[in-house]
Amino acid sequence: MSKILFDHQIFSLQVYGGISRYFANIQQALEKEDDCSGRISVLYSKNYYIKNYQAPFQNSLGERLFSSQEKEYKWNKKYSKYLIGKNNFDVLHPTYYEPYFLKKLKKPYIITVHDMIHELMPDSFSSNDITSVQKKEVIANAAKIITISETTKNDLKNIFDVEDHRIEVIYHGYQQKEQKFHSSQDSLQKDKYLLFVGARSGYKNFNRFVNAIAAFLKHKGNINLICAGGGTFQKEETKLFKKLEIEKYVTQLSASDQQLDALYANALAFIFPSIYEGFGLPILEAFQNRCPVALSSSACFKEIADDAAEYFDPMDEHSILTSVMKIIESQENTSSLVEKGIKRLENFTPQACFDKTIALYKKIS
């Protein structure tokens, strides 16, 4: 029996988020294995994806004791150190890059590198952000490194000079769901809005995207932009909307997974203008919900979507708008993109992700 220990980091930092969902899904897959088990070293976590995990204080007492994220992180870190010191596992899989575990660790560990954004786009982060420094140290000592795309693997090799044989590319898996809805009967009709999902700052390229479509929104008058997640609009964003005279066309919504599925299913198009990403899970979410996509022409997005998207130069506002218009103006093109998207999902099954990851655990345990 191979015992895998996941540390606390991402589960102490995120309530929702792609990285914590990735690790939660792997841990849950391990529960179904006969010869491999997984444990998460948290005393208590507010993370949505492990809400049913039987942590020692995953109850009302824990909610009171660890009321702030600072307390939650501090005590979960102490607990992680304690379990690592006990040495009752075969492989450690840290969930983020803080190297606190290196001095006590006696067993091999695997690290997953989701992207190289901190290294490629440092201006998007504060000057005292130490993520890149920590990442480099953790990568240097790892038995194996998982990257979630060939693009991230190549970036990792180029930036940190990591040997090819130490890296395993394992794509994220996307769990397809039974469709229970399509066009809604309320204000979110399929010809009414474009969809943007997630964070909007820095490399996400949101402001340039908004500038690109502003005149189009005003001209049409009956098409809106919905931003799902990413927090409420900042003052700078509302100033931009006012300057462009599109305040009434732009809305921000916090959405559950089910609500997000409905937003994709009823959107005119999903737009992903990021200058760089390590994977792009929202692309698969859009494919699942039969939503046509317009994407930045980054290497990663082309790797994931192949011919199932309209592509644009993320630095060129005219190019962005042209791609959006190609979807809006041609039902034939839209239908073709949707069908190609459904086909692309076959390349990103959760079981393939789990099988390859678990095989790697067994290989080094």
Rank of each mutant, 00 (worst) to 15 (best):
M1E: 06
K3F: 12
K3C: 11
I4H: 13
L5A: 09
F6K: 06
I10Q: 03
I10P: 00
S12T: 08
I19P: 00
Q27C: 15
L30H: 04
D34G: 02
I40M: 01
I40A: 02
F66Y: 04
S68A: 12
E70V: 06
L83N: 03
I84R: 02
F89H: 01
L105C: 05
K107S: 04
P108G: 05
S126L: 15
S127Q: 15
I130N: 01
K135I: 15
E137N: 13
V138P: 02
I139L: 08
I148G: 03
S149K: 02
V162C: 02
D164E: 11
Q175A: 15
E178M: 07
D186E: 06
L188R: 11
K190P: 05
A215E: 14
N222W: 12
N222R: 07
L225Y: 04
A228Q: 12
G230W: 06
K239F: 12
K243F: 09
L244V: 11
T251Y: 08
S254Q: 14
A265I: 10
N266K: 03
A267V: 09
L268H: 05
F270W: 02
I271N: 06
F272R: 03
P273R: 08
G280A: 11
E285N: 09
S298C: 12
A299S: 15
F301R: 02
A309H: 08
E310C: 15
M315A: 12
M315N: 10
H318C: 10
H318K: 13
K326I: 08
Q331I: 11
T334D: 05
G341A: 10
K343E: 15
T357Q: 03
Y361H: 05
